[in-house]
Design a protein around this nucleic acid. Sequence first.
DNA 1: GATGAATGAGGCTTCATTCAT
DNA 2: CATGAATGAAGCCTCATTCAT
Lengths: 201, 201, 201, 201
Amino acid sequence: MAKRVDKEQRQAELLEIAIEVFAKRGYQATTMDEIAEQAGVSKGMLYIYFKNKEALFGAVFRWFGKMTEEVMQGAIDDTKDEVEQIRRITAAWAEVAIRHREFVPLFLDFWAAASVHGMRNDYAEDLATMYDEYRTMIIGIIERGKVRHIFKSDVDAEAIAYLLVGGMDGFFIQSWLSQPNNLNTLMFNATESLLQGIITT
Amino acid sequence: MAKRVDKEQRQAELLEIAIEVFAKRGYQATTMDEIAEQAGVSKGMLYIYFKNKEALFGAVFRWFGKMTEEVMQGAIDDTKDEVEQIRRITAAWAEVAIRHREFVPLFLDFWAAASVHGMRNDYAEDLATMYDEYRTMIIGIIERGKVRHIFKSDVDAEAIAYLLVGGMDGFFIQSWLSQPNNLNTLMFNATESLLQGIITT
Amino acid sequence: MAKRVDKEQRQAELLEIAIEVFAKRGYQATTMDEIAEQAGVSKGMLYIYFKNKEALFGAVFRWFGKMTEEVMQGAIDDTKDEVEQIRRITAAWAEVAIRHREFVPLFLDFWAAASVHGMRNDYAEDLATMYDEYRTMIIGIIERGKVRHIFKSDVDAEAIAYLLVGGMDGFFIQSWLSQPNNLNTLMFNATESLLQGIITT
Amino acid sequence: MAKRVDKEQRQAELLEIAIEVFAKRGYQATTMDEIAEQAGVSKGMLYIYFKNKEALFGAVFRWFGKMTEEVMQGAIDDTKDEVEQIRRITAAWAEVAIRHREFVPLFLDFWAAASVHGMRNDYAEDLATMYDEYRTMIIGIIERGKVRHIFKSDVDAEAIAYLLVGGMDGFFIQSWLSQPNNLNTLMFNATESLLQGIITT
DNA sequence: GATGAATGAGGCTTCATTCAT
DNA sequence: CATGAATGAAGCCTCATTCAT
């Protein structure tokens, strides 16, 4: 074991820096020089750990997906109550939106990248899968709640999933643009109103 | 007046082509050459009608804003009933999402552009204003509904506005990614569930 | 005779504008659009009266040469005394340098243009001819003065001509750069010192 | 250290080539491609060593200023006699004019560049400072000569400085245009005549 | 391994000149 | 005659990627 840090850790460090720089400057405006300099390594080094700029961006993308998934999953682990699970998911997301405002540009870059066909990696597919999983998670909650008669039996679980997932993203972006100081409350109230519409009385 | 078509029409034509190309390829990937070629005019021509690439993109942006505003406004013109107004807004938006799938990348590019500080035009500000207006429109509907005891008096109008506006965008994007064939139904059902939560019984 | 101004006058007008614009912006930075707009005519018009941009510049160049020659010639017309002639030439030149500071950039552009071989017109040759004539004029004065024993017989008339002509240009440029408020005095004193060196005692 | 030569030397090499090309073609007509090709390096390389075309020209400008200053300074180092100092300055300058004819276009370009306000660097100011220094040097010589009663006490040192500095430039340019084969003699004779006018008898 | 000098394709933009109306 | 819309060649500059040391 030489004094050199091992590859995996080095790669993780580079990724961390890349996240920072991509978030601050956007994908296009970010140069490999900038990342290398910020990381204190040579440019050639980056190319050893990541095939090219796009691969590096892809790594950031996957990191982001994992992070959000953990947030969502972590939110529902502690309770079996479906209503509470939905509350916690949106609350957790509001938390992310507040604590990680700096990721919004990154987030938007992912989408923009996904929507362009020129990119070698197929972000669109990855992103679609990600959103599918989120919706599936929500649908599962709703359906279980329906079985337990907590949610009305005629609720369209898929529609609610679309609304919640889309709404959370929309909240994220709008809050970034307009910076409301009561984001948690807004998210909470919106969630409650929606819940009022789907729970059995 | 020398040669060809009149200036205004020519500019509109070029804008139309630019919308198409930007939508297909994304802002960064789009080259002025490409737009010119697609429009069947010389590159220099573009610069007569638009100061530079960014100004052209700005024009596309403004066109998009105007278009969506008209859609929203048109949806509520025909009825005074607040519940119906909200239904029509979301329905109209679903319509746009279906008919204009090709605009999603454009839409994402606006956001991505807004989030990057390098751009000379301040898209972020324009976009924030746009969203403010949409929310203000929704808030107005909710508040009027509350006065008429159609909506519960304790409904947080701002929160609903955030959810609806964000949700519509989220629907737009998700539907672009996953291409559900029953988008109208999904949007309708989601809206109904939310309405159930805020109307007086 | 139509109401339209006749060609020659129109050409003179355009030339006048061109002088102004070239002087203010320099040859390269000046665009044909700019001249046309300033002159209140169409761009195509310029090309009717002047073959191209360079031809227009050439016309300005010739105008400048004629103007300076007239200044020099006018200065010596009124007197037969050689010492006085030299005094008047330098004084006249100082006058031009003060009154027409705005022509310095033009003047420099002529030289710069002359020194580049890319230009289609051979400014270098024209300029060389112009300077030859100036020197010849000075040499004539000196030689006549020598004949009349006003100037020392061993004075190198050509050398003095070089110094005077070069000195006047140098004065012109230096005064443009440093803007002394006593330019006439400086020019006068310099001339007197030189004269002291060449007149017979 | 990766690859090839050391940075400083490489920069010096590129500068040398740039001097050559700018001198031959003039600032405007010179393209970065041309310099790169002439230097046998890629275009991008130039931009590593010099921020842009203008910065490269600025470096050439500074090199020229340093060179001429060394010539002037070197000329007066060896003697304390003021008359001799002036003789040597003009002689040294004649030497430069003969040996470095190719720099005249460069020289003119500096002036032309200085006179145009579009340039980002303020050449005018630098050039003015340069000329100020030259004149100050001459004025110092004259004044010291006056103290030692070598020069007449009523000589206007500043005027002489203007004439000498301007005269030298004028000589330089005229000699480039007309290519006299006895430039040293002309410069020498002109200087002698002027000296005759200012020394005490 | 590690470096960073070097490359060169590719994009944006300008503007002299032309020519259909 | 007069116009000014249209052209397109040409120039500057950037930056992902490579590779000699």
